[in-house]
Design a protein around this nucleic acid. Structure first.
Length: 302
DNA sequence: GTTGAGCGTT
């Protein structure tokens, strides 16, 4: 049997690489590991189902139909798939508020600073060719998408918003913020930032002053925030409880939170960037690490 | 030729 090349990608959605087989028709695990270090095997999709390939020693054996019948992707040890959260794929992002004059070249130039771009569009009127004031972008890297969603953008002299298309809550703080209960006065904002920074980038820490037995921590990635909810963590010997920042409330609890300025009242409001600020008292201690572009007033309806 | 909340001719 002669050497052939097998299409192997890391995940099912990723771009495949051609990997060479051995003389006996097998694919060495070490050959796979040369591209995907932690791969423990290969699988493929057949009739809507996933099938694993036979592994003998360090050799992955082809399916009965031969290598060329399928495209393959990597299997990883369970421990890895649990610890390394599989990063979501990038989605198209809508860019709202573009200046009329702004074209795709400028949009591309601006967002390239956040990461590689797979797509840039500025929507225009078919007849006149004039910009409709919005467009779409897609990043290659999900981290870049998170950064872009997490702030506003000054493009050609106008503040623009990046959101996930057709999602009301594209990157809203509600899903990025957690409530940290049972705090003691010994837990400073810096303590919380340092501790929770291990789980993902923290963009805001709120510790009420004067002391109350709770805090808020806001992450860049909503998935990090959501993954922590319901857990108890010990920080500097203090057992705190993490829950969603906007729990369902009965009326009395809700009115109390409203009194604290912690809940929305449903009316249009003007607030500053970062948007976290509007939920808290002006005397509260916020600390920031994320780049904060400006303090332009930001009208939001929600 | 204008405009400023929204959601993509293919």
């Amino acid at each position: 049997m002669s050497i052939e090349y097998v299409l192997v990608s890391e995940g099912e959605q990723d771009e495949p690489i051609e990997l060479p087989t051995e003389e006996d028709g097998s694919l060495l695990l070490s050959t796979i590991a040369g591209q995907y270090a932690d791969a423990s095997g290969l699988k493929y999709r057949s009739g809507g189902r996933l099938r694993g390939l036979r592994l003998v020693e360090d050799r992955v054996l082809p399916p009965a139909e031969g290598w060329s019948a399928h495209r393959y992707f990597c299997a990883f040890p369970r421990s890895d798939t649990l610890s390394e959260s599989p990063r979501p794929r990038c989605s198209d992002l809508i860019v709202l508020g573009l200046p009329w004059k702004t074209g795709e070249d400028t949009v591309r130039e601006y967002f390239a600073a956040f990461g590689d771009l797979l797509m840039v569009q500025v929507k225009r009127d078919m007849k006149t060719g004039l910009s409709k004031g919005f467009g779409f972008i897609k990043f290659a890297d999900y981290e870049a998408q998170l950064i872009a969603l997490g702030r506003r953008h000054m493009i050609d002299g106008r503040w623009c918003d990046v959101r996930i298309p057709n999602s009301k809550d594209g990157g809203s703080v509600a899903h990025r913020k957690v409530f940290v209960g049972r705090c003691t006065e010994s837990l400073s904002a810096d303590d919380l930032r340092e501790y929770f920074g291990a789980f993902g980038q923290v963009t805001d820490v709120f510790v009420p002053k004067p002391f109350r037995a709770f805090s808020f921590v806001t992450f860049l990635d909503p998935e990090v925030a959501q993954s922590l909810c319901g857990q108890d963590h010990i920080i500097k010997g203090v057992s705190v409880n993490i829950s969603t920042a906007s729990p369902k409330q009965d009326r009395s609890a809700r009115s109390q939170l409203l009194g604290w300025g912690l809940l929305d009242n449903g009316a249009p409001r003007v607030y500053s960037w970062p948007p976290d600020a509007w939920q808290h008292s002006a005397h509260s201690a916020h600390t920031h690490t994320a780049p904060i572009p400006d303090t332009k007033p930001y009208l939001k309806y929600d």
